[in-house]
Amino acid sequence: MTDEPVIARIRLNPHSRDVQRDLRDATEMHRTMMRMVPDDLGESPRSQTGLLYRLDDTDTTSTLLVQANHLNPARLPAGYGQADIKSLAPMFAALRKGLAVRYRILLNPAKRERLPREAKGKRGRIVPLSGADADQWWLRRAADAGLHVHVLTPINMPPIRPRRQDADGMRHSLIRYDGTATVTDPDALHEAVLAGIGRGKPYGAGLLSLAPAPVA
């Protein structure tokens, strides 16, 4: 177990029954990811340890990226996958204003519905955003996070609805954004990477990945 922010890249074993179960059910995936953080964290354990994760699929493999302040992949079910873990400290040390980066993030763009004036005191439901509205939502969030986005490529992903009775019943519409950006505020970006962005974090949304952009 580590005491600094780390990220694990887990190449999933497609023959594992635990993996197959988790790929079918986002709530079960969340429970499996929480096995890697310490026990007895009290209320809001995911937030306390900063756990974020994202599933990246290709034609041949499924890889989980998992980020947290404390992470122990040895606590995953036997045969779940091969995990490589590294510290986030070098990435944070490299952040500087003007740095060109490539990014990837899976998001649940949403807004709270505005109610008529006569409904004072009530809160509108959360509604998902799509298309240009979702793109603008991400551009605003990216700016707040210290990124000036140059390119954004949206990919609509399968939505998630938690299945367990005690889970949040909200349907999470997911969009993955890939692109390039320039760092405008390294401190804000550091915080955004650690805290994640947007809703749906227990179900695989919000993890912002960064890498240096190739020099033209």
Rank of each mutant, 00 (worst) to 15 (best):
L106V: 15
P45K: 08
P38R: 13
P186D: 05
G196E: 07
K86F: 12
L174P: 00
V183F: 04
Y177Q: 07
T184S: 00
Y53N: 14
D135M: 12
F92S: 06
K201T: 01
V101E: 05
A83L: 09
I7V: 14
R114N: 02
R140D: 06
P154E: 04
R54A: 14
Y80I: 12
L106M: 05
R114H: 03
D56C: 11
P38Q: 15
W138V: 15
K97A: 13
L95S: 07
T60P: 06
Q136P: 07
D185K: 01
A26F: 08
I126E: 09
Q82M: 10
V101Q: 05
L88S: 00
L208V: 08
R176Y: 07
I197P: 03
A134Y: 10
A74Q: 08
L210N: 09
G42I: 02
R11A: 09
M91Y: 12
A110T: 12
I197C: 01
F92Y: 14
S130A: 15
A216T: 15
E28W: 03
S47H: 03
R75V: 12
A181C: 04
A74I: 05
V151Y: 07
T61A: 03
N156K: 12
T58K: 03
F92N: 05
R54I: 09
D25Q: 13
A167V: 12
V101F: 03
V19Y: 02
T180K: 04
S173Q: 04
G121S: 14
I160D: 07
R164Y: 08
A167H: 04
D135V: 15
L147G: 10
S44K: 15
T27L: 04
G196R: 08
Q48A: 04
D187L: 09
T2Q: 01
I10R: 06
H150T: 12
P214T: 14
P158F: 09
R171F: 10
A110M: 10
L139Q: 09
G42E: 02
P159N: 13
P90N: 06
R31A: 15
A26Y: 10
P154I: 11
P186G: 11
T61C: 04
Q165S: 13
G146A: 06
R199Y: 02
P45G: 11
K97F: 05
H150L: 09
R17N: 01
L139P: 03
I7F: 00
A74G: 12
T2E: 01
I105D: 10
V127D: 05
N72A: 14
N13V: 02
T63H: 14
R24E: 15
P158V: 12
D57Y: 12
K111V: 12
L23A: 04
S62L: 01
G204R: 05
R104K: 00
A145F: 09
E4F: 07
P162K: 08
L208F: 07
H70D: 00
S87M: 02
I10M: 06
I155N: 00
R31S: 09
R164G: 07
L88K: 11
R117E: 14
K86P: 01
H172S: 04
G81D: 07
